[in-house]
């Protein structure tokens, strides 16, 4: 009995030891292949995990893997992580075209996160000898950065460069749109704020928000009227002490709100201009 158990044990050990000889685990290239497939179908978190596995088990880390990991993180809106991976890809790559691709993606990431000045540094770091399509895209990105930092003349030049010179009509249209300074800078938040300081509600009217302007005007006028009434019927001291704290709150709130409304309105106007510019640029691409 004991002999049989020992013999069976030996057989099992021998059998399972042999399994290791005939079976094999996933290779790094298979992991990368699977990760690529997951990226294509949009499973970015799985894809990212698989690329990380490939780097962990792989013999060498490559720029491509870091680049793909950056793209996955970008799609997952993990922008800080994406920037780090694009940076690593840039330093891991040894060819200029691949370095350009990773720097482009890094700039894109900085534009999305509205870090326009950092994006500009990345874009100016790109090589001058780019294929035409990439050059036009680079100019578009530069235009975006300038537009985002309120440098509209520079943005105009770059957006026009993003369009092939053969599209004369579109280039003229972009020129006209970005030369319209009134549309881009109106309403001025500081002007709106100052107007509301001088006369409550006026800044809101200037920014085009008539409801809020009227509301502010009625409220502050009512408080002034009440203050005058108390001053006449009782004393000036009573009038001032009763009404001044309320008046100060709504007067200050009024001009602060006028500034905020003007900022929102101006941002809307700028977005409108940008949408038209983008439409013109896209129309030259298909």
């Amino acid at each position: 009995m004991n002999y049989c158990t020992n013999a069976l044990k030996a057989i099992y050990i021998a059998l399972f030891s042999c399994i290791a000889l005939v079976t094999y685990g996933q290779t790094t290239s298979e992991i990368v292949h699977f990760a690529n497939e997951q990226y294509k179908v949009g499973n970015y978190s799985t894809s990212l995990l698989e690329y990380q596995r490939a780097i962990f088990f792989g013999e060498a880390t490559t720029g491509e893997l870091f680049h793909q990991m950056g793209r996955c993180s970008f799609q997952l809106k993990k922008y800080d992580q994406a920037l780090e991976y694009f940076d690593r890809a840039y330093f891991a790559y040894d060819t200029e075209s691949l370095k350009t691709a990773s720097l482009f993606d890094k700039a894109k990431c900085n534009i999305v996160t509205k870090n326009y000045n950092i994006a500009l540094i990345d874009l100016f770091g790109l090589t001058d000898s780019l294929p035409e399509n990439t050059y036009r895209l680079k100019q578009f990105y530069i235009g975006l950065c300038y537009f985002g930092t309120d440098q509209f003349d520079e943005a105009k030049t770059s957006f026009m460069e993003a369009v092939n010179p053969s599209f004369v009509k579109q280039r003229q249209s972009i020129d006209q749109l970005l030369s319209n300074k009134r549309m881009l800078n109106h309403p001025n938040p500081k002007t709106a704020s100052t107007m509301s300081m001088c006369f409550p509600g006026l800044g809101q009217f200037y920014a085009g928000d008539y409801k809020n302007g009227l509301n502010s005007l009625i409220l502050t006028s009512a408080l002034i009227t009440l203050g005058i009434k108390i001053s006449i019927e009782q004393s000036y001291i009573d009038g001032i002490f009763t009404i001044l704290p309320w008046f100060q709150r709504y007067y200050q709130g009024g001009y602060m709100r006028a500034e905020k409304i003007a900022m929102e309105k101006r941002a809307e106007n700028r977005n409108e201009v940008y949408e038209k510019v983008l439409q013109e640029i896209v129309s030259t691409k298909n």
Partner: peptide, 20 residues
């Protein structure tokens, strides 16, 4: 290829959109 090129630009369609 052309439509891919246009989509690279359209990606930024909402870059300056305001969210009230």
């Amino acid at each position: 290829v052309v439509s891919q090129e246009a989509s690279a630009y359209k990606e930024f369609a909402t870059q300056f959109e305001t969210h009230k």
